[in-house]
Design a protein around this nucleic acid. Structure first.
Length: 479
DNA sequence: TGAAATGTTGGGGCG
DNA sequence: ACGCCCCAACATTTC
């Protein structure tokens, strides 16, 4: 009996999993495999938050596989070596996977494919991560898109992404299971347990993804166009980490949202669906860009920004990381990130603007911190987001577009509920002062139990001055 | 998916 | 009634 290995990576689900379905169609037994080989990811090995998530997501996948009479073979080491060994142990001569588009992985996978084929294996890869493959969409001039709007129009004009496929009901097991390590051997969990905030906020695995999706469809989609900008509300889907690990397929999300809007036949829902799918479009855009411009993980896409006069001050970076900048919205965001492994997108833009423009810290420093702390850390989206914020990427916000952290707070967290949740030492301050405590009278501060410089910091920089400094720095790279 | 600076307009107070 | 000033409200330009 023939046997097919299915390599799981960023597709930790059983439904709408093209590699898995193709393996079943091929006939014979199926051997699901996970190989932990972080050094093969190059400079961007999974960060701490991602590892925590990965552990739990693998546990969930393993349980689901077992309920189908299968299992997950867990190995660590060199991917090529381990797959060969697994193949020998169960007599498999085929390997199927869903593609990833990160530069180091594309390179690794290309080598892997060739090496195994040379040894007589059948190796096939599929698209399980994206709505469209990066090579499918080109401008009329045959170039990759670098501006979002035409990119998205091309997506919408393209034939619909495939309908999602249901999970198989059963997976034929091999006669003998290859050796497998216990999950704990991968040592993905932190040594000191800092993950309690993450446990409270998330349920890694496709079951958790499913719950998020259903809740969002029922309660969130309708108000998405406005509430998506409100960190004080539960107005977004929170699917990002689930999409990152492939616990839910983007095609599934796409079709569920469209189906709901089509059934409802209401203009508001149509608009809401459009607005949400557009964000899925940004995810897609990020992945396509990284595929076509692999150097952008570390270097600005707009080369002139390489000469930007950044100021990397470790003490200021530290204050930013710890949520001690003295700007309440920035600090709230950074603490939400530290505690839950996630930050609301509106606030991500504000904290990124603050780091890059108010502090003049290189965007790569911010990207590194997000990479380590986000449970949804995704190389393509992280790169796109930071280059967008720094004004040096594709279709980026112009550098002179500088967020005012006070105004953003007043506009998007008007009652200060978001700040109060994450910066409790300001909890007693009334809304008008909450976003700019340094402007409150000594009496107001005393009444709220706030002592600036002691219980909560003074602003690290004066935004007005910082803004002028940033614009002056920009002049240096202009001809 | 900005915000500040600058320009324009129009109503009201007032001599 | 008129001209003048002020300034809020909005629009446009600039960074």
């Amino acid at each position: 009996m023939k046997s097919t290995l299915v390599l799981f990576r960023h597709d930790l689900r059983l439904d709408d999993n093209p590699a898995l379905l193709a393996a079943i169609e091929r006939g014979g037994s199926i051997v699901p495999v996970f190989v932990w080989s972080p050094e093969e990811e190059g400079k961007w090995q999974p960060g701490s938050a991602s590892r925590w998530w990965l552990h739990h997501s693998l546990a969930s996948l393993c349980q689901q596989l077992r309920s189908l009479g299968s299992n997950l073979v867990v190995r660590r080491g060199n991917t090529f070596t381990e797959l060969q060994r697994v193949g020998e142990e169960c007599g498999a001569d085929a390997l199927f996977w869903n593609r990833r588009h990160e530069p180091a992985i594309v390179e690794r996978d290309t080598t892997l494919k060739l090496a195994l084929r040379e040894r007589g294996w059948t190796v096939q890869s599929f698209n399980g991560q994206l709505l469209f493959e990066p090579t499918q969409l080109r401008t009329r001039g045959g170039q990759p898109f670098q501006v979002f709007t035409p990119f998205w129009k091309a997506c919408l004009a393209h034939s619909e992404p495939n309908e999602p496929q249901p999970a198989p009901g059963r997976l034929p097991a091999p006669k003998a299971w290859p050796q497998s390590e216990p999950l704990e051997a991968l040592r993905l969990l932190p040594k000191i347990d800092w993950a309690s905030g993450m446990r409270a906020a998330w349920q890694p695995g496709s079951e958790g993804a499913e719950r998020r999706l259903q809740r969002f469809l029922e309660e969130g989609l309708e108000t998405y166009p406005t509430d998506r900008d409100r960190p004080d509300r539960d107005g977004v889907s929170s699917l990002s980490p689930h999409l990152r690990f492939g616990e839910i397929s983007p095609r599934r999300v796409w079709h569920e949202v469209k189906k709901l809007a089509a059934r409802a036949k209401r203009a508001t829902l149509d608009r809401a669906a459009e607005s949400y799918l557009r964000e899925l479009g940004w995810r897609e855009f990020g992945h396509h860009l990284l595929f076509h411009f692999p150097h952008t993980t570390d270097a600005p896409l707009r080369a002139e920004f390489a000469a930007f006069p950044w100021h990397d001050r470790p003490s200021e970076v530290k204050a930013w990381q710890r949520g001690q900048t003295g700007y309440p919205l920035v600090d709230a965001g950074m603490r939400q990130l530290w505690t839950t492994g996630w930050m609301h997108n509106r606030v991500r833009m504000v904290v990124a603007s603050f780091l890059v423009k108010d502090l003049l810290v290189p965007w790569q420093t911010g990207a590194r911190w997000f990479w380590d702390t986000l449970v949804d850390a995704d190389l393509a989206n992280n790169t796109l987001g930071w280059q967008w914020s720094a004004g040096c990427g594709a279709d980026a916000a112009p550098f002179f577009r500088i967020f005012n952290p006070v105004m953003q707070g007043e506009r998007f967290d008007p009652l200060g509920e978001y700040v109060r949740r994450w910066v409790p030492e300001l909890g007693q301050l009334a809304a008008p002062w909450l976003h700019r405590p340094w402007t409150a009278s000594p009496a107001t501060l005393a009444e709220a139990g706030v002592e600036l410089g002691k219980t909560y910091p003074f602003p690290l920089v004066d935004h007005d001055e910082a803004r002028k400094r940033a614009l002056a720095a920009l002049e240096k790279i202009k001809k």
